[in-house]
């Protein structure tokens, strides 16, 4: 019977250190530059141009015409970064976060610009509108 040609390599490797990353005990392997991690959305910068809605291949964005913003559910995100490239105001960007496991697909961390925030902004906008009208009336008088 012939001996396996792998035996010398195996014996040599037995004397070496293991080349593994013991993840939960140590830091994970560092991410490279321009890593595409969790999507981050800046509501204040958003102007509601709907470019991200057009370009997204995964249906992450829903446009809200009343407030002229978008709401995001990154549970579906495929990390293609096209929305980041197309956004004219840099309201969207990719972070370095990649440990995104969750028990709930509608988890807080997957949803940007939540219902309460939308309602808040709506109220704020209405107040602004009223204030403007009041100012106009005052001017006319």
């Amino acid at each position: 019977m012939r001996l396996s040609p792998l035996i010398p390599t195996v014996l040599r490797n037995l004397a070496k250190k293991p080349a593994t990353n013991l993840f939960p005990k140590v830091e994970p392997v560092p991410v490279p530059e321009n890593f595409r991690g969790r999507l981050i959305y800046d509501v204040d910068k958003c102007v509601g141009c709907r470019m991200c809605v057009t370009v997204c291949p995964a249906g992450v964005f829903v446009y809200l015409p009343e407030v002229r913003k978008v709401t995001l559910w990154t549970g579906r995100c495929v990390f293609c970064s096209q929305c980041v490239d197309v956004c004219p105001t840099n309201a969207l960007k990719m972070s370095d976060e990649f440990l995104l496991a969750s028990y709930d697909k509608y988890d807080e961390k997957f949803i940007w610009f939540k219902e309460e925030e939308i309602e808040e902004l709506k109220k704020k906008l209405e107040e602004q509108k009223k204030a403007k009208e009041a100012a106009k009336k005052a001017e006319n008088k």
């Binding site: 249906g59 829903v62 709401t71 559910w73 549970g75 579906r76 509608y106 949803i111 219902e115």
Partner: peptide
């Protein structure tokens, strides 16, 4: 369906 649309009943926009 998107969670925002699901919460307002019906997945279709």
């Amino acid at each position: 369906g998107h969670p925002y649309l699901l919460r307002r009943g019906g997945g279709k926009p």
